[in-house]
Nucleic acid binder design. Structure first.
Lengths: 139, 139
DNA sequence: ATGTATGCAAAACATTTGCACCTGG
DNA sequence: CCAGGTGCAAATGTTTTGCATACAT
C-alpha cells in the first residue's frame, strides 16, 4: 500500500499518481521512460498529460520512491526504488536490462573516491553489450 | 599532426575541424561540451556555427578521434580519445573531473557480462561526489 | 570542377513552466 | 473551501537537419 508513501512525502493521493505507481509496479519492464508510461495510460483509456507524468516522476524521485537513470542518450528512464542499490547491464540491440551488484566493485569505488579526496554521493555503472537472445545474434 | 587522422577518416582537412581538434588538445579542460568549444572559438574571433561543431564532433566520434560522454543530464561532453580507457570521478559542486582506471573493476565487469551471456561493447562508470577543494567544503 | 563542408535558420526532441480549471481532504 | 494537482499550450535547452553558399582537392 503506497498511499502511505505518498502521504509521507507530503503528496496528495491522486488518481494520476496512483496510476503511475501501479504501472511502475506491475509492468514487466522495470525501467520505463515518461513516454512509455504515457502511452500505456492512453492505451488503457486513462486521461493524462505528459507534463503531469514528468512532474509526478520528478516528485517521486525527490521523495525517494523512484530512481531516474540517464542510460545512453535520449530519454531518461525511471524505476521503482527497491532499497537495494544495483548497477545495470544493457543490451544495445534488444534493450534487455540485467541488474547486478558486485561488492568488490562497490568497495573499489569507495577506495578510489577516498584516495582522490572525494566524498561519494552517488555512482553509476552501466555495461553495454549484446546479449545472447537469439534475436541479438545476427552479428 | 592530426591532419593524417582526418584524412584517414575520410574527412577533408578544413579550418573548423583543425580548430576544434586544437581546442580539444590545448584546453585545460579535457572534457568540453559543444557549446564550450563554440564560445571559445567566438572569443578568439573564429567564425563558426554551433551546428558545425556538433556535426564535426559527431564525425570525430565515428572516426574514433573523440569520445562522447553523457555525464548527468544536460549537454554531452567530448574528450580526445587517448587510447587508454578510463572511468570518471566527478565533483558535483565544482565540476572537477578525475580520470581513473582500476584493473580489478575492469576484470569484474568482464566476468559479470560473461556470466549473464553478454558480449561487452562498452561500459561507463561514473562516481559522483564532492571533492576536497576548499570551495567545495561548505557542506 | 565537383563533391564536401559550412553557416544559418528552422525542425526535432526531451523536459519544464505558466496558467486557468479541477479535486482531494 | 482551498491548497495543491492537473491538462494544455507555450517555453526551454540541446542537438539535428535542410538548403544555399563556400571551400578543399
Amino acid at each position: 500500500m503506497e498511499t502511505q508513501d505518498l502521504k509521507r512525502a507530503g503528496l496528495k493521493v491522486t488518481l494520476p499518481r496512483m496510476k503511475i505507481l501501479e504501472i511502475l509496479e506491475s509492468s514487466n519492464k522495470k525501467h520505463m521512460s515518461a513516454e512509455d508510461i504515457y502511452k500505456l495510460m492512453l492505451d488503457t483509456g486513462d486521461e493524462i498529460g505528459l507534463a503531469t507524468i514528468y512532474r509526478v516522476l520528478t516528485q517521486f524521485e525527490g521523495a525517494g520512491l523512484v530512481i531516474r537513470h540517464h542510460f545512453e542518450a535520449g530519454q531518461a528512464v525511471f524505476e521503482l526504488e527497491s532499497g537495494k542499490h544495483h548497477d545495470h547491464l544493457i543490451c544495445i540491440k534488444c534493450g534487455k536490462i540485467v541488474e547486478f551488484l558486485d561488492e568488490a566493485i562497490e568497495a573499489k569505488q569507495k577506495e578510489i573516491a577516498k584516495r582522490n579526496g572525494f566524498r561519494i554521493s552517488d555512482h553509476s555503472l552501466i555495461i553495454y553489450g549484446i546479449c545472447d537472445n537469439s534475436s541479438c545474434q545476427q552479428r
